[in-house]
Nucleic acid binder design. Structure first.
Lengths: 195, 195
DNA sequence: ACATTAGCCGGAGACACTCTCCGAATCGTG
DNA sequence: CACGATTCGGAGAGTGTCTCCGGCTAATGT
């Protein structure tokens, strides 16, 4: 998935520094959220700021590189869901929950993801598009089997999964309320037994 | 609701400046979102930065003051809902939609609101608590009448209303998807006619 | 009217973060 | 080993937050 489109291979020190920056960045973002200082990451990696910005021109580019490392992991999760779910409705539910977890990998991650949707200039945009396509497949199957409303749209479901993840980031959100907010996305607050 | 708790009245220039800052701030936040530069607001108001920070020690304090100006308006909306809704379920739905609109007053407003929940230190915390209490009343009535799930919690519904507002702030979100995301909160994506 | 003083104002400046630029250092190759 | 292409480092410009305190103003007493 590396977009080497014809130029020669990068120098060994460049490759090494790039990887090291990714490692330190992951650690920093895990600790201070995605808004942590980029210069601090460079310094922590023992490199100059210029080096960081050459490899990753923006915070979004760095995040995109960090997230692409998990692409394989998500692919596995996807197959696992397909072979585990008892019906297409469950499959969609499990997929959306996986998305909620994914967007919760770092504190504040939902924000740049949301911002990237629609702005095709962002390196995160293609990441989002991939997941939206994935969501659409689960959704279509659920709709065809009568488990999901026909007026639901994949983009909106993806956005709402990000929104739930965003809400779970609140200080007050314990694991119980996290679960029930995810459940809210599936079934809403209205009572089904109402006439 | 002004917390003058015993000290003497503020000087006239202070009162005037405070109001002027609020006006300019409202304008700035409407134009550039809640992350707009505070120093720019002070400069635009023809005042020094120190003056702004003395009246409003933090961005949250400024936002809280701005929002408190709308308290009355929301109170009206609340009574209007109570007298318009055909049942307690509709009333809760209308109230949540009003919250979604309210949190969409400025670009990026849901973020500081979410951050303020639980951190009782923030000037926005009491604002949120008020709305959570209001939500709880609508919710309790809806639950007693059988229109809302008994396991729903007011704090979570409020947070999810903020989350929907947050999602609506996405570049891609047109008014149609805004409506359907709000509807998602009420009914979820699952199909009600499923066995 | 004038003095007094508590309260208020202004904006320079310390500090933090983002991002650029280009001379210096390094890698890979013949 | 020498040379050219590539990469690095970190100073510094630009922007924003927030504080501090000398100087000014509004309110009050005489």
């Amino acid at each position: 998935m590396t977009t080497t489109h014809g130029g020669r291979a990068p120098r060994s020190d460049a490759r090494r520094n790039r990887q090291h920056l990714l490692d330190i960045a992951e650690q920093h973002f895990a600790e201070h959220g995605v808004s942590g200082s980029l210069d601090a990451i460079a310094k922590d990696a023992g490199l100059g700021a210029g080096t960081l910005y050459r490899h990753f021109p923006s915070r979004d580019a760095l995040l995109a590189a960090l997230l692409s490392a998990r692409d394989q992991e998500i692919g596995l999760r996807r197959e696992q869901i397909a072979s585990t779910a008892v019906d297409p409705g469950d499959a969609l539910d499990m997929w959306l929950n996986a998305l909620i977890d994914w967007a919760g990998a770092f504190d504040g991650l939902p924000d740049p993801l949301r911002a990237a949707m629609g702005e095709q200039a962002s390196p995160l945009a293609s990441t989002c598009e991939g997941y939206i396509t994935g969501t659409d497949e689960f959704l279509s199957r659920a709709q065809d089997a009568g488990f999901a409303r026909r007026d639901a749209r994949a983009r909106e479901l993806f956005l709402m999964a990000l929104a739930v993840s965003w809400a779970q980031g609140a200080a007050m959100a314990d694991s119980a309320s996290a679960t029930s907010m995810a459940e809210l996305l599936r079934s809403g607050w209205a009572n089904r037994t109402t006439v």
